[in-house]
């Protein structure tokens, strides 16, 4: 084998210099990449892992209900019990018709659980994946994506099962339900962006996962999930509209509960929020991608 004599002499010559000194001498250049190229590369890397993604999602769903007698039925029963409790308590409190109010609550609770579980689960996804990340090369985006996709599947299952229940309770079918996939896609994008952003931030500040949990608990009561918006005094209404979560829940309410087609602004506001959050997530990923592994 030809040994590159040239190379080894190079090494010896620069061995006494630090990396910073070599940069100063223009011997090595720090890398730079445009945002678009970064996105393209990330998506390309993920496309090679399509099968891994589906296996991870399927396995985590299976693991969740493994060995339980009712199995997947729990994805229906969990929100159902919450809904029954909430409906009983709050319809007594607000003197609402429990049937209508039940549907109102479930259209709030299900998207909220999707959001909550994606964000709290997602925020730990990179920290928990340390074992993988240090042994094989997997794009960082993979792990938040697995969590959010798992929750999305769970969400779709509970939503469709509860829809049958709602029909039994006297909800009427409306054509607006056809727009449901778009609403789910928007919420999915928002959850992915938040999960990605928090997953990376949590690598740097581990306390963040606890902070997120506490904040989301408070937000549960700040979003009109278990009470109708009309109990809020009009002068405080703007405070509720400043809350980004409100717009996502609202979208599902309009489609399922009211049975209307959402208006342009009902689509645009949550879409804009989702795009901004997704952009924040990817920007942070671009900035930290090659550093995360050293911080785990």
């Amino acid at each position: 084998m030809v040994l590159s004599q040239e190379n080894s002499s190079n090494i010896n010559a620069s061995a006494n210099l630090s990396a910073e000194e070599l940069i100063a001498q223009n011997l090595i250049k720090p890398k730079s990449e445009s945002f678009i190229n970064f996105l393209k590369r990330s998506l390309f890397e993920l496309s090679n892992l399509k099968f891994a993604l589906t296996s991870f999602v399927v396995n985590s769903l299976r693991r969740r209900y493994r060995r339980s007698v009712l199995g997947f039925a729990w994805s229906l029963l969990n929100p159902l019990t919450t809904m029954v409790v909430m409906t009983t308590v709050f319809s007594l409190l607000f003197h609402n018709n429990p049937k209508e109010f039940g549907i109102y609550i479930f259209t709030g609770i299900l998207p909220w659980s999707f959001l909550l579980d994606s964000i709290t689960g997602g925020s730990l996804s990179l920290v928990d994946a340390e074992g993988f990340l240090k042994k094989v090369y997997i794009p960082k985006l993979f792990f938040p994506l697995v969590i959010v996709s798992t929750e999305a599947v769970n969400f779709i299952f509970s939503l469709s099962s509860l829809m049958f229940l709602a029909l039994a309770l006297g909800m009427h079918l409306s054509f607006s339900l056809l727009t449901l996939p778009l609403a789910i896609a928007i919420l999915y994008a928002f959850n992915l962006g938040s999960a990605l952003f928090l997953a990376i931030s949590t690598v740097y500040f581990r306390d963040l996962t606890h902070i997120t949990r506490q904040l989301l608990q408070a937000f549960f009561y700040l979003v009109p999930i278990c009470y109708p918006l009309n109990v809020v005094p009009p002068k405080y209404l703007f405070l509720f509209k400043l809350n980004p979560f409100y717009y996502f829940i609202n979208l599902f309410r309009i489609i399922i509960c009211d049975g209307h087609f959402p208006q342009a602004k009902d689509w645009l506001i949550p879409s804009a929020i989702a795009v901004i959050v997704l952009f924040m997530g990817f920007s942070l990923l671009k900035k930290t991608e090659s550093d995360i592994i050293f911080r785990l």
Partner: peptide, 24 residues
Amino acid sequence: TGFDAELSGRENIFLNGALLGRSY
């Protein structure tokens, strides 16, 4: 890497292969 103790050997073949970037 990526072996899941709860899954069967067969399922782990697919999971581990997927992590190595292989298709179904």
